[in-house]
Design a protein around this nucleic acid. Structure first.
Length: 207
DNA sequence: CCGAAGATCTGCT
DNA sequence: GCAGATCTTCGGC
């Protein structure tokens, strides 16, 4: 599932590998929370995700493969990037059977200067808030579509701290609005929109 | 071939 | 809180 890498001194970091993504998207979406995502050294800790399943009307894969969604049918760990509303790029990681996890918000930690220069704000709370803003801050465009999430320029380290997960309906959909497949870190100031109620999800307490 | 819709964001009211 | 920007794909005629 994960691979231990020796770090300097006493710390160990754990790098996510392809097996991590070879599971249903709601599981992966929960477990990505608190992990650290970098693209060419810019990024931070994932605080908000959404899952899109194989039999999910809201998923881009629902109506079969097309020119733009082909990466979503790749093996687990494939990066799927699409353009949203003609203006924004959105970043996903493919899981099992044409499912995926949309990365919606980060708590910035690395490459602050570069991210600020790419965005029109220096406010850390909005730097990587929302899937489009996040991609702008990290320099993600469709040039990275189809690459491996487990290889450069991407880097993904498993979370080290306890993370309490909350969930709620996904955002911006016209179909399948009922699935509570938006996940976030409890009380994070960096999510794109608050979770209501801001209580732990009925089930989940990770690590 | 044309029109509508879409996993969004910003700025203005 | 809502309209507008902006572009690509797909479905209907």
């Amino acid at each position: 599932m994960t691979k231990q890498i020796s770090g300097r001194g006493k710390h160990l970091s754990t790098v996510l590998n392809d097996a991590f993504f070879a599971r249903p998207p709601d599981i992966v979406a929960r477990e990505l929370l608190g992990s650290r995502l970098l693209v060419n050294g810019c990024g931070g800790f994932i605080v908000e995700t959404e899952a899109y399943g194989p039999d999910d009307e809201a998923s881009h894969s629902f109506k079969g493969m097309s020119k733009t969604n082909a990466a979503m049918f790749g093996p687990p760990g494939t990066v799927y990037i699409y353009r949203s509303y003609g203006r924004h790029w959105c970043l996903n990681f493919v899981c099992t059977r044409a499912s995926a996890v949309l990365v919606r918000a980060l708590q910035p930690s690395e490459g602050l200067g570069l991210m600020v220069s790419r965005r029109s704000t220096s406010d850390a709370r909005v730097l990587c808030r929302g899937p489009g803003n996040l991609c702008q801050a990290l320099g993600v465009t469709n040039e990275l579509n189809g690459l491996r999430a487990t290889l450069p320029p991407f880097s993904l380290d498993a979370r080290e701290d306890e993370t309490i997960v909350v969930s709620g309906p996904r955002i911006g959909l016209s179909k399948a609005k009922d699935r509570p497949w938006r996940f976030g870190v409890l009380n994070s100031a960096y999510v794109s929109r608050p979770f209501r109620p801001a209580q732990p999800d009925e089930t989940v307490r990770e690590d």
